[in-house]
Design a protein around this nucleic acid. Structure first.
Length: 352
DNA sequence: AAATCGGGGAT
DNA sequence: ATCCCAGATTT
């Protein structure tokens, strides 16, 4: 009937975790607290925090009545204190709205701060045996592999598909165990690296295993479209064909390399150019884009030909930035950024 | 250095 | 509804 759930439950009976502190007793408050802690921290670490927390604040009402400082102190070391504040606030709301209990109604539950679809489902399933799916990181990994789902789980279409699968697999019987089982499988067998497919109860029908995709799924987050910055590069060339270069500062890209002077836009380029040389006119050269790992740089070269170097520059007396007029023959010896070298080479070939 | 995690908040 | 960020840990 539900081969996925049955295989998982059989595995869980033998290999799952049955001794986690929030399983004994398994009430809504303890499940909620554990799920919230587990959103950010691994089981091994959470256990100690959980035990201290419930010893100090064993019930939702006591949590609601506790001073925030105490809640934060109990949370101290777990990080992400916003979640502790949500927890505290939600407890107070439960006292106000729900008679001091976490609601058994899904919509009322997810209306509380810090409880979303997955945590809400986990509470209802684990504490009350209600048939609600969960979709935490472990489950996402199991399902993307089992069904061979490509695409980053963060993409809405993929996530939608995952919720759909999660729902279909969730059984009506033993929902609490099932929920724990699929999380345990993800945590101990279907791990992100070095999954132990040899011991997996779902190996028979796992698409990723069948197709050799286990290491490829879940798909990594697509490289975010890199921002594009724009710059105008000034090619100041004097009558002898020398080009003005500047040494870049120690910060930013191309630290310490010799490069063309830059400006934010054409106007600024003109202002800057006139400080270095007497200029007649400018010619826009074809723009091109240089790709860095973290952004794209669209370069608009602006050629000032027949520039007459200003005396101070010609004498190398300019204070900052360090700059010099270079012969094309000197360029090879200088450490030029690749796109600048390319630009100057094209210039030579094109206009020489 | 980059990915991760589930939920909140902005748009 | 859809995108983007949080905030600390892990890889």
């Amino acid at each position: 009937m539900k081969p996925f759930a049955n295989a998982l439950l059989a595995w869980f009976d033998e290999h799952g975790r049955h001794d986690l502190p929030w399983q004994h007793p398994r009430d809504a408050y303890r499940v909620w607290l554990s799920e919230t802690m587990l959103q950010q921290t691994q089981v091994a670490t959470v256990v100690g925090y959980f035990e201290r927390f419930v010893e100090a604040l064993p019930t939702l009402r006591e949590l609601a009545a506790a001073p925030e400082d105490q809640v934060l102190a109990l949370w101290s070391g777990l990080g992400y204190y916003r979640r502790a504040r949500f927890l505290h606030r939600a407890a107070q709301l439960c006292v106000e709205r729900h008679d001091g209990q976490l609601p058994r109604d899904f919509d009322a539950l997810v209306a509380l701060p810090g409880i979303g679809r997955s945590t809400g489902g986990a509470i209802l399933a684990q504490a009350h045996g209600l048939r609600f799916p969960i979709l935490d990181g472990n489950v996402k990994r199991v399902l993307t592999r089992y069904h061979g789902i490509h695409g980053h789980p963060g993409e809405s279409a993929v996530e939608k598909s995952l919720w759909q699968r999660a729902d279909t697999h969730t059984p009506t019987m033993r929902v609490a165990d099932y929920t724990q089982a699929i999380m345990d499988l993800g945590a101990t067998v279907c791990t992100r690296t070095k999954p132990r497919c040899g011991t997996c109860p779902l190996a028979d029908s796992c698409i990723a295993l069948r197709d050799g995709l286990v290491t490829l799924l879940p798909s990594p987050k697509p490289a975010k479209t890199t921002p594009t910055r724009e710059t105008v590069m000034l090619v100041l060339r004097d009558a002898r064909g020398r080009v003005l270069l500047e040494r870049r500062g120690p910060q930013g890209v191309w630290p310490g390399l010799w490069s063309l002077p830059e400006a934010a836009d054409v106007d600024a380029a003109w202002r800057s150019a006139r400080q270095c040389a007497r200029i007649d006119d400018a010619q826009a050269l074809p723009p091109f884009t240089h790709v860095f790992s973290h952004y794209k740089l669209r370069i608009e070269p602006l050629l000032f030909d027949g520039a007459t170097p200003t005396r101070s520059i010609a004498d190398n007396a300019a204070p900052t930035p360090e700059s010099r007029w270079c012969d094309t023959s000197e360029l090879v010896a200088l450490g030029l950024p690749a796109p600048v070298r390319k630009l100057l080479q094209n210039l030579e070939g094109h206009l020489a």
